[in-house]
Design a protein around this nucleic acid. Structure first.
Length: 181
DNA sequence: GTGTGGCAGTTAG
DNA sequence: CTAACTGCCACAC
């Protein structure tokens, strides 16, 4: 699979913490480097476990954190209640930097989609100068290491919703949440 | 509505 | 290297 070679973070923040966070009916998995640097966020347990394993491969240890110690809880609380439309979180993750050029372009493109709006995989493909790569864009979305922060749920199919790593039900919920504003 | 062939990027072997 | 996957899409019936 992708990103089998995650490079160690540049900073010496060696302590990684894994959180399982729950807000209302939605829960997700999150990995934090150091005190408050989110390096991975996903709705799919499979992806989260894989990320932990990759860190293990580069001799990094990951400890479990308690939900109440999750540093950005207020922000996500606000997001899931519709009060926050843009995460004040810096994107600085070794999982991002170990992506391919194409993936990085896709992720950057996704980051520009405004709250409450959607684009199609084909649209995104065109906007990064690679028309016809819609399917590859879909793959890159699936490989996104920072769900919500890089809002891949705002990328949909030309006909239907498209897929979602954490299940389309969650994608639907997120879009409905953002719709209300 | 459904079939189908082609598509680009990435991974597996 | 080839083969086999995908969070796809356009164009046919």
């Amino acid at each position: 699979m992708i990103m089998d070679k995650v490079t160690a973070p540049q900073q010496n923040s060696q302590n990684f913490t894994s959180f399982t966070c729950r807000y209302g009916l939605i829960s997700f998995y999150c990995m934090v480097a150091g005190k408050d640097n989110i390096i991975y966020l996903t709705f799919a347990q499979k992806k989260h476990k894989r990320a932990i394993r990759l860190l293990g491969d580069i001799k990094q240890t990951v400890q479990k954190g308690k939900h109440e110690d999750f540093p950005f809880s207020p922000d996500f609380q606000d997001y899931f209640t519709g009060k926050l439309t843009r995460f004040p979180i810096k994107i600085q993750s070794p999982f991002i930097s170990s992506g391919t050029d194409f993936q990085k372009k896709v992720w950057q493109g996704i980051a520009k989609i405004p709250y409450g709006q959607t684009v199609t995989y084909g649209d995104l493909a065109r906007s990064i100068g690679k028309p016809g790569s819609a399917r590859a864009v879909g793959s890159a979305c699936g490989a996104n290491p920072l769900a919500l922060i890089i809002p891949c749920h705002r990328v949909v199919g030309a006909q239907g919703l498209g897929g979602f790593a954490g299940g389309v039900a969650i994608k639907k919920k997120l879009l409905q949440l953002e719709e209300k504003c």
